[in-house]
Structure formats: structure tokens, C-alpha cells
Design a protein around this nucleic acid. Structure first.
Lengths: 187, 187
DNA sequence: TCGTCATGAACAAGGGACAGCTGGTGGAAG
DNA sequence: CTTCCACCAGCTGTCCCTTGTTCATGACGA
């Protein structure tokens, strides 16, 4: 579907073609500006469009095979929401009457699971912490990680969204482990 | 920025809040419907929103470390366009007068490079094929790859967008190589 | 306008998935 | 018509995705 076709489809809903052009331009422009400004655009049921920092790396020239250094950059990223993914995967078909975004019927999705999880949530935490070390007999690191997460959980509120990965180690060897730890501490 | 703020920002451009609500609803709804229908929404300068089939695989439960089978599914995917990426990365700042999407000034960007590439495009193909083996003395695979691509180039026009990955090999060992070859042949 | 609830994010470990390098060409948009 | 953008190839390093839980916030009914 082209941009022109998109405008045409929107015109089919708005009724006017001129309004559709303005609508498409305005919506996309606002989203782009917000992302450029570093703000994440989050629409329930549709998805989140945000900007994330990508660490520098070494890529490869397809023709010559030579290693080229790619410096760290910021790229926009879109994460589809649950409803969108469900509709695309076919789990839930899209409603034809109302808009396909931000429509949350009262109890259309897994009502039993939700009501069951809510009251048992308090003691579920204890169950998880107890079960983890038992199964993780082969890996002791997991238990420590869980404990650390519980401790840091109240400290981390929302983080800054942008500024998660700040590993400048491009010329280093791997820096993967360092980046992991960096993410936790949120340097 | 949530949906309400998005509507407000769009209202700032359209002038009316009601029109902004309809605009946001219509645009998102149209995009969602198109993607659900299997059609890719491609807006030049903004990005492409499409649905891709993800082959089944084996993931891992982070708590227990157990391998869990993930059956194949279809998920929406967004790929940002060049202009969008440039603006986010800071290479090109967004224009404040016009919309940030699909704005192509006549010759504002890298005029010398463009005019040089356009007329030489026809014979540039021969130049590339000749230059590649010369530089690729250390890697012969690159030259073969280029030749193969040239042969398949006229055959592949647009492909089906959706239906690229159809490797059902879930219980196999890796299936990565097989999937690669599948992509070329477009089974 | 307030209350309730669904929805999204984070955290962890590890491996599969995938973005993207370069450069030419087709298509698209103005 | 002109000018630009997206795509595509093999190969890598980066990143996302998986489950399950809790917290926080947004969305919606009354």
C-alpha cells in the first residue's frame, strides 16, 4: 500500500480526500517529531514508537568483505502492542465497526486467567523465588539475579527511555557482558 | 506521549480537536487493517509497516532455563525509512515548515553525488562487476554472489513481501542455512 | 469526574532473529 | 519529468524474544 493509497483509504473513513491528506501528514509528522525529540509515542492497542540508541559495531562491506566501523547511532523503533499482534497473528479478528486501536471490551481477553492471577499475586512472589533456585540447581547465577532484581525493583521507577545503552566500547572485543551490567545499573 | 497527547498535538496542526481524533483513529485503523490483511503500508521517508511470518523456534524460559517451543506466528514489523532514521540520528534536522514525511526538495541534498551517479548508472553496473573481483582477491565468494544476484535480479520484481520465511523446520537443529537458501529461491 | 481494571514495562539468560554494511536499479512521489 | 528512496545480496554483531511476576499508568464506565 502506497502513501497515496493510504490517503485514499483514510479518505474512505473521513469522507474527504483533502482531510485525509492533512490527517496522514499531521499524524505522521507529529509522531516523527515526537520520536525525534526523544519522546516515545505510545498508543494502547497499537504499539509504541520510540527512539533507541544503538551501540557502535563493526559491519562488513558485502562486495569487498572489508570490516567497516559503524559508530553508534540512534534509530527509531516500533514495538507493536498486544492487540495489534493478536490481530495480525489471527488470534483476535479486527472489529469492523469501531477503530482497531484502543478498543478494550470489558472482558474479551482471558478473563479467567486475570481474575485468578490478581488475588494470588501476593503469595505468587514467594512461590517464584522458592521455585527458581530449586530448578536452577545447575546455575546458581539465576538465584542471585532474582534476589538482585527484587532489591532494585523499587529503585527503578521508569528510567529515561532514551539513554539505556551507552556502551562506547566499539574498538573493544565484545562488550556484551559489560552492556548487560550497564543496563541494570542504568549508569 | 500517549494517545490523548498525540491527538492534542495533531489538533495543533489540524486546528480542530474533533478532526484530530478522527484523523488519528482513521490513520491508525487503516494501517492496522492493511497490515492485518497482509498488505505492507509503505510511506516514503517515514517507513514500512508490514506483517512478517516468523518461523517456529525454541526459546528459553528465563526463570527455569527450560526450552519452550514457540510455534510459528505472524507479527507486525516496522522498518523506519531513511529520512526518519536520519532525523532521529541527528544527521538531518526536521523541517519545521512542512511535514517531516515525503519531503523531497529538488537538489538540496548532496547534489554533486546524485548528478554523478545518475548518468553513470547504466555503465556503473559493469564497473561494479569488474571492480568487485579485483578487490575481492582475498574472498572469491563475493564475486560469485554478485554474479548470482545479477542473474536473479530481473526475475525478482517485488516478491510477495509476506511469505518470505516459510521454514517449518522447528524440531530440526538450526535451520538457519536452509532458511537462507529458501529466501533466495522464494519457494 | 472518580474508581476500577486492563495493559505495558522491566528483569533475567540465552539463543535465534535480524539490521545493515555498499552500490545499482526500479518504483514512487512531487 | 526529475529526483529520491526502498530493496537486495552474504556475513556479523547486536538485539529481541521467550515466561512469569509486580508496578504504574492509561483507559474507560458510571
Amino acid at each position: 500500500m502506497n502513501k497515496g493509497q493510504l490517503v485514499e483509504a483514510v479518505a474512505g473513513q473521513l469522507g474527504s480526500r483533502t482531510a485525509a491528506e492533512d490527517a496522514v501528514d499531521a499524524v505522521l509528522d507529529v509522531m516523527v517529531r515526537a520520536v525525534v525529540a526523544g519522546e516515545a509515542v505510545q498508543v494502547t492497542g497499537f504499539g509504541t514508537l520510540e527512539s533507541v540508541q544503538r551501540a557502535g559495531r563493526y559491519a562488513r562491506n558485502p562486495q569487498t568483505g572489508e570490516r567497516v566501523r559503524v559508530k553508534k547511532t540512534t534509530v527509531p523503533r516500533f514495538r507493536a502492542g498486544q492487540g495489534f499482534k493478536d490481530m495480525v497473528s489471527g488470534t483476535k479478528q479486527l472489529p469492523k465497526s469501531g477503530p482497531a486501536v484502543a478498543k478494550a471490551p470489558k472482558g474479551s481477553l482471558t478473563p479467567s486467567k486475570t481474575v485468578a492471577a490478581t488475588p494470588t499475586g501476593t503469595k505468587a512472589a514467594a512461590k517464584r523465588s522458592a521455585a527458581a533456585p530449586a530448578v536452577t540447581a545447575k546455575k546458581t547465577t539465576a538465584s542471585k539475579a532474582v534476589a538482585a532484581r527484587k532489591a532494585t525493583a523499587p529503585a527503578t521507577k521508569k528510567t529515561a527511555a532514551v539513554s539505556r545503552k551507552t556502551a562506547p566500547a566499539v574498538g573493544k572485543k565484545t562488550a556484551a557482558a559489560a552492556k548487560r551490567s550497564t543496563r541494570r545499573t542504568t549508569a
